[in-house]
Amino acid sequence: MGIEWLPVTQKLSFRKFIEQSDLLEELKYDFNETAELRHTETHGPFAFNYYKNVLERNSKRYWALGHLLEQYIYELLEKVCKLQKVYIPPESDKEPRSFFFMSERALSNHHSALLVLLQDHGVFRAGQWSQQAIIHHGLQQIPWKSDTMYQTALQAHYDVIVLNPSDNFVDQQTRKEWKELNTKC
């Protein structure tokens, strides 16, 4: 399969995000050796209908998994791709703010090529083209693995910026709901 980045991702365990979330019993998932999201006991794929025919609770559980995947992908962008997380506006404690990722000299190196990546709108966040694809088909769907554009661009000495425009629409109410969901599903 040739996924050289896999040993690095295994060191950066997705499981630790679940353990820190208080959802350990409801989300017994981690990425296996082939980068597929699997149940830690049954080794089966993600099951949406965990609570038999309780759509709202299953939806909240799926949303929570998506949020944890988002945080995991951000860590991989920083630690595997060596991209910096840049907040905008840079110094704001009171107003909502967002962020994007970039290579160290992306905005200052005028002699290098620049690759700017922009995902689709909706629930997609920086570094993801589809949460559903990650959940059902694994990390192979991520554009930063060794044989894809991020790594190729970085190896060719391009500078990289990964935009995060969908995060601009996340309001404080959504962040509050996530914190509440994080303590119970």
Rank of each mutant, 00 (worst) to 15 (best):
G2E: 14
G2N: 10
I3Y: 04
I3V: 07
I3E: 02
E4A: 01
T9S: 11
Q10M: 11
L12W: 02
S13F: 01
E19H: 07
S21F: 04
S21E: 10
S21I: 06
D22Q: 08
L23S: 05
L24E: 14
L27R: 08
K28G: 10
D30M: 05
F31M: 06
N32C: 03
E33V: 00
R38A: 06
R38K: 14
R38C: 10
H43Y: 13
Y50F: 15
Y50W: 13
K52C: 13
K52T: 11
W63K: 13
L68K: 00
L69G: 03
E70S: 11
L76F: 02
L76D: 00
L76P: 00
L77G: 00
C81N: 05
Q84Y: 06
P89W: 09
S92I: 04
E95C: 08
P96L: 12
P96S: 07
S98Y: 06
F99K: 06
F100K: 05
A106Y: 01
S108H: 04
S112C: 07
V116P: 08
Q119A: 13
F124W: 11
R125M: 10
A126F: 04
Q128N: 14
W129D: 12
Q131V: 03
Q131D: 08
Q132H: 09
I135P: 02
G138F: 00
Q141F: 01
Q155M: 03
A156F: 05
Y158H: 10
D159A: 06
L163C: 13
P165F: 06
D167V: 01
D171I: 07
R175D: 06
E177R: 14
W178C: 03
L181R: 03
L181K: 03
C185F: 10
